[in-house]
């Protein structure tokens, strides 16, 4: 069985994710590139977890415990979010 695609992303982008300055207002600042972003509350939640965790299962577990969401939709949305991040954190 191959690795979950998000685990690959999390280990590859671990350093980039950690350097992001996150603010509860949804303002995100990347000190390396000088780029700033707006992230929505669920995106912020995921970013905070990703800064602590490299295991997608643990992140999913946390989100599913907190939010009214199925595992299937979470996986789909998380994948799409990681595609966005991959683009901006290059």
């Amino acid at each position: 069985m191959s690795e979950h695609p998000l685990n690959n992303f999390l280990s590859l982008y671990s350093d980039s994710l950690k350097r992001l300055a996150l603010n509860d207002s949804g303002f995100v600042f990347d000190p390396m590139t000088g780029q700033s972003f707006t992230v929505n509350p669920c995106g912020l939640e995921l970013l905070k977890l990703m800064q602590k965790q490299k295991d997608v299962e643990l992140i999913n577990h946390q989100i599913l415990a907190e939010f009214d969401i199925t595992a299937e939709i979470l996986e789909r949305d998380f994948l799409e979010f990681s595609e966005q991040l991959r683009r901006y954190l290059k």
């Binding site: 207002s25 949804g26 303002f27 600042f29 707006t38």
Partner: peptide
């Protein structure tokens, strides 16, 4: 400042 820039951007 980053804080003022953030405030203007977000709010």
């Amino acid at each position: 400042s980053l804080a003022d820039f953030e405030a203007m951007t977000m709010t």
